[in-house]
Design a protein around this nucleic acid. Structure first.
Lengths: 239, 239
DNA sequence: GCGATTTATGGTCACTTTGACTCTAATCGA
DNA sequence: TCGATTAGAGTCAAAGTGACCATAAATCGC
C-alpha cells in the first residue's frame, strides 16, 4: 500500500477529519455551533465540531455521526452537504491533517449537550464568530466558516434548502425571515410570497393555520419535494 | 501526532491524492482527459489523471502540478476549481485513499504527451466515458466524472466560466457553441448574444473581427473580469 | 365593545426580461 | 451576380419583477 510509482516528491499519509459548520437561526440571527477546545493545540480557543474519520468509515457517515454527537439530533431532517476539503500543509501543528468540511442547516436546535470529552459547545452568532476576521477561531476554521456562509447564501438563491431552517410546519413569513437573516437584507413580504408559491415543489400547504400571538393567522406549509429553485430567488448585490 | 482523544472507533491515516476531471471542447464535443493505467489496480482501465499530494504540498498546488504534468500547459489560463472529496473506505483496493477531485476547464488543448510513467493519455468524449454508467472507469472515477459534468453545467448557468473553454480572442458564436455542447441543447443565437452582451463583465470587445471562412465576419471578444453571471443564463429542463 | 395595531395576504401597475421570430449585413464561392 | 452562409439588429406578445396599495383577520389597550 502507498504510492505505487516513485513520486517526484516525498509523500506521506495524512490524518483525515471532518469538520462541521452547523448553522441555525436563533433569536432572529444566524448562529453557528462552536466548541471550546479543551486541549492543545489551540486550547481554550473556539473551533468547529469535528473529528477523525474512522478507519472503515465513509466521509459523509463520519459527518452525520459527528452531527448527531454534537447536536444530539439524529433526524435526517437536517440538511447536510459537503463544502470541500481543506488541506494546507501547516493547517494543523500536530502534522498533516486534511479535513473535509460539511455544511449543515437545521431548524432551531437545542442548546447542545456538553460533549463526552468535556468540550463545551455553544451557538455563536456567525457575525460574532467572524469578528476580526475570525482570528480567535482555531486552525483554518475562520476560512471554513466564511466559505460555509457564502455557500449558504448562494444555496438560498438557487435551491429550496431555506426550508431546512424552519421547523415544520412553517409559515411563509418564517421562510422569509430565513432569507432576511442569512442575506442580511429585508424582502418585500408580498413579492416573496408570490415567488415562493409560484415555484412548484418549494412548499406544500397543510391547510392549517397558525394560532397567532398578534395579527392575522398565517397558512402553514411543509417542505416540498423539489430541491432546485427555478427561477432563482435573487438577492440584491448591496450589503 | 494522531488522534489526541481516545476515539470511539479505530482511526488510521490515509493516503491523500488529487484527481482531475479536465474538460475541453474538441470537434464540437465535450471531452475529458483519461489515462490508461499501466499497473494494478485496474491495470489497463481508464482513469482520471491524478496523483499523491506531496508531504508539504497544498491540495490546490498538487492539482495545478498534476494539471501541468498531464496537459503540458502551465498557463493559469485554465480554470481550476475543487469539486469535492471522495473517501469511501473501499474506493481503492490498496488501502484507505481519500481523493480530492478538481474540475479543470480549458480551451482546446494539445493531444497530451505520454506521461513520464508510460501512462497514455487521451481525450475521450464525455458521453463515451460515461457509457454503461462509466463502468469501464477505474475506482469511483465514473462518479467523479458525472459530478464534474453536472458541476460544469451548473457553472455555465451562474458564472462566466464558459469563456475558459474559448481560446482568446473568441466570438459570441464560439461562446454559444460552448453552452450548446455542454448543455446538449441548441440556443437561439440572437437571444444568446443579447444576454451575454447585457451581462456586464462577461466579455469585452476587442474591436477586431474575424477573417471568416464563410459568412459575415464576427466581432472578437476577450474574457471579462466578472466571475458571476447576473442574471443567470438558464437551460431548459429538458434533455 | 371598539378602534388602533399587527401581521397575512391579495391585487395593481409600470417596467423589464424572455422566447420566438423576422429582417438586414457582410462575406465567399460558383 | 446570385445563392449560401453566418453575424447581428429589431419586433412583439407573454411572463416576470419591484414598488406599491388595499383588504382580511386576528390581538390589545381602553
Amino acid at each position: 500500500m502507498g504510492p505505487s510509482n516513485r513520486p517526484d516528491r516525498p509523500v506521506s499519509p495524512a490524518w483525515v477529519t471532518v469538520d462541521l459548520a452547523i448553522f441555525t437561526i436563533r433569536d432572529d440571527g444566524l448562529h453557528v455551533l462552536l466548541i471550546e477546545r479543551g486541549k492543545p493545540p489551540y486550547e481554550g480557543r473556539s473551533a468547529l465540531p469535528g473529528g477523525y474519520v474512522g478507519t472503515d468509515e465513509g466521509l459523509e457517515h463520519a459527518a452525520w455521526r459527528e452531527l448527531k454527537e454534537e447536536t444530539g439530533v439524529d433526524s435526517r431532517d437536517l440538511h447536510l452537504e459537503q463544502l470541500g476539503a481543506y488541506g494546507a500543509p501547516d493547517r494543523d501543528p500536530r502534522g498533516r491533517v486534511v479535513t473535509v468540511a460539511y455544511l449543515a442547516l437545521g431548524p432551531e436546535l437545542p442548546e447542545p449537550v456538553a460533549g463526552t470529552d468535556a468540550r463545551r459547545a455553544h451557538w455563536i452568532p456567525v457575525k460574532k464568530a467572524l469578528d476580526a476576521d475570525g482570528a480567535h477561531l482555531a486552525f483554518d476554521h475562520a476560512v471554513i466558516v466564511r466559505d460555509a456562509l457564502e455557500r449558504a447564501r448562494t444555496q438560498l438563491e438557487y435551491t429550496t434548502v431555506a426550508s431546512a431552517f424552519c421547523p415544520e410546519p412553517f409559515t411563509i413569513s418564517d421562510l422569509r425571515r430565513v432569507y432576511e437573516v442569512v442575506w442580511g437584507q429585508a424582502l418585500d413580504p408580498s413579492n416573496f410570497r408570490r415567488k415562493v408559491l409560484k415555484a412548484e415543489g418549494f412548499v406544500v400547504a397543510t391547510g392549517e393555520r397558525t394560532a397567532p400571538s398578534a395579527g392575522r393567522p398565517a397558512a402553514l406549509y411543509r417542505r416540498g419535494e423539489e430541491k432546485l429553485l427555478a427561477p432563482p430567488l435573487m438577492r440584491a448585490d448591496s450589503e
